[in-house]
Structures are given as structure tokens and as C-alpha cells.
Simulated assay, not measured.
Amino acid sequence: MIRTGLIGYGLGGMAFHAPLVDAVPELELAAIVTSRAEQVRDRYPSMQVVPDAATLLADPAIELVVISTPNDTHAPLARAAIEAGKHVVIDKPFATHVADAEALQALAAAQGRVLSVFHNRRWDSDFLTLRSLIDQGRIGEVMLYEARWDRFRLGLRDSWRETAGPGGGVLIDLGPHLVDQVLALFGPPRSVTADIGAQREASQVDDYFELTLHYGRMRAILSSAAIVPAPRPRFAVHGTKASFVKHGLDPQEAQLRAGARADAPDHGVEDPATYGALIAPDGSHMVVPSERGDYRRYYSGVAQAIAQDTAAPVSPGDAVAGLRIIELARQSAAEGRTLPF
């Protein structure tokens, strides 16, 4: 078993990383760095709680370090972990700047360490279903891909996510998920056009974006907004044979936040009421049962990469490409023009 240390026990550490590592047989969740010792021991009574990252990194028994901290701390913590000889998983975003991400990628390669970014949404139930439909040719040649992540959140929160700075805002928070999914399906675009803004009163950060990725004839539109009482489809993908339209989010986050185990029999299984539909040109609908989502597959892939020297489930190169699109999007919105990738 690969002894694993987690840095951070906020939403990401508590609802994603700790329960997922705990549910993967090849990994042992051995220590957590947090000031929330009581919350940790409510769920993991015998867990070692470490006061700071330096103490964890100095432990020679820890092989893998998972970083789930505010966005602007990802790069420096990852650098320290790699230099300490650890394999590293970083929660998205990889870093807040492409240059920092590229430096980490080069450092991990030079040190012979596995470095991966937690783009767990590749294992969402709806995305797995969509990918299967595209691979089977049931949508035909995709001409318009729309992926949206809407919320209705009028009030501002006292959170680093909504504080001005390189780590705040919805583009760097939810954008990496949407961008990574489209890159996984279609590869890099030819160019990027973006509209980014703050729609809530007194917001210090962007809470709205719409990116258009240009792929020759095909367009991919990625969007998120904070003031949407009636959420738009999570996916609306239109091709030469059919459209696939899907509302709602994968259930895993809600299940994990409620304290469910990631290895429970019903984990990642969607309610049939939220299944998507294939819609043919004649208007006929076919309900498509969602595949089971399973974020454990990401961590199983990390364990295999460490033990067998195979490719990481999400490569640093993939994450760098996603960050480059986000940087181009900011420049595109600021300059009001389409930019080549």
C-alpha cells in the first residue's frame, strides 16, 4: 500500500480526496495536515493529524502527497513536495499561471516523480455517458458542443474563492473542469474567444464566463454563471445524427459531502429522473441511462502509475494545456478578440 498524506481538509479534502483515497485498496490515507483535527477524527478516529506541511513532507514513510488547499498555494506546495521526493496529486487548478505549471512538470520529470492533477470530472456519470455516445457514433460528427455549470447564488461568501487575486473567481475554479473535459474529447482548439465578467453586486472576482473554442467547423461553448434560477442543460451536444441533452450534475459530490462511502454499491449511480436523452432530427427522444460515475478510477490510476511506472490518469501536459486556454481566455476577454491557441 502507498502511504498517502493529504494537505488540506476543507471542501476538497473532506468531500473528495480523503474518502476517495480511503476507498482505494492500493492507497493508505496515513496523515492529514489541517487545523480541523476534530472534524478529521469524527470520520477517521485513528488518523494522524499533522500541524503543517513541512512536518508531513519530512516523513520518509509518506510516498504520495495530495494537495487540496487554496489555489494560489498549489504550485509552491507541489514544488516542496517533489523536492522532498514525493509523488504528488494537485487539486485543480494545476497552478494559477502556465509558467508555474510548466516548471512543476519539468521538475517532476527530472526527479522521476509522478505528478498528476485531480481532474475528477472525467469520471462523472454524465461525461462518461456522453463520451461513450460520441465514441459509438450515435451523435454523428459533432458540430456544436455546449457544457454549462450554472448556479443561483446571489450572495457573496467569505471565501478565498471570492477574494480578488490569482486564485479567485469562477473561471479558475470551475473553468478547469469544463476545459479539461472538452480537451479530453476533442484535443486542443485552433483558437479561443471569451467573455468574462462579474455580475453580482460588489463581487471582487469573475462569476460569469462564456468561452468559445474553435475547432474548424465545430464550436465548443463552455459557460458558467452565478445568477441562473433555472439551470441550462449541463450538456447539449449536437451532431449530424442526433443531439444529446442532459440536465443535472453527477451525484458523487453530493453523496461524498453527505458522508457516504465511495465504495458503496449505489455510489455514483444517477437517479433515472435525471438521465439524458438522444433527440433525433425527426424529434423522437430516446432516454439514455447514465453510466456509473466513479472518481476512484482516478486514484486507482495514480496508484498504478506509482507502482508500475505507467502514465498518470491525468498528465501534467493535459493540465498545462487547460491552463493555457484559461490564460488565453482572460486575454481574449480583455482585448475583445479571438486568439489562436
Rank of each mutant, 00 (worst) to 15 (best):
P93K: 07
V88Y: 04
L128P: 08
P189V: 02
R3N: 14
S290E: 06
A226N: 00
D150C: 11
S315M: 01
S35M: 10
V192F: 02
S315A: 05
M143F: 09
M47Q: 12
D59Y: 05
R261V: 10
L29C: 07
L185G: 07
Q252G: 12
A225I: 02
P289Y: 09
V117R: 12
A333F: 01
V320F: 01
I221D: 04
R261W: 11
V182G: 04
A164C: 09
F341P: 00
A319N: 01
T274H: 11
D150G: 09
M286V: 14
H97A: 15
D173P: 01
Q48G: 01
T34H: 00
T163E: 11
S224T: 01
F244L: 11
S290D: 13
E327I: 01
A84P: 09
R36N: 13
Y9N: 04
S46W: 08
L133N: 07
A164R: 15
A202R: 13
P51L: 04
A109Q: 14
S68P: 03
P25M: 06
F118T: 08
T212M: 08
A23F: 08
R151H: 15
L339P: 05
A15Y: 05
S116K: 05
A30I: 03
V245L: 14
V65F: 01
T240K: 06
R157P: 02
P189E: 03
G155K: 14
L339V: 02
A37R: 14
P166E: 13
R36Y: 08
E201H: 12
G301L: 07
L278W: 00
A54R: 14
E210C: 10
L56H: 02
A226S: 15
M286K: 11
G175H: 07
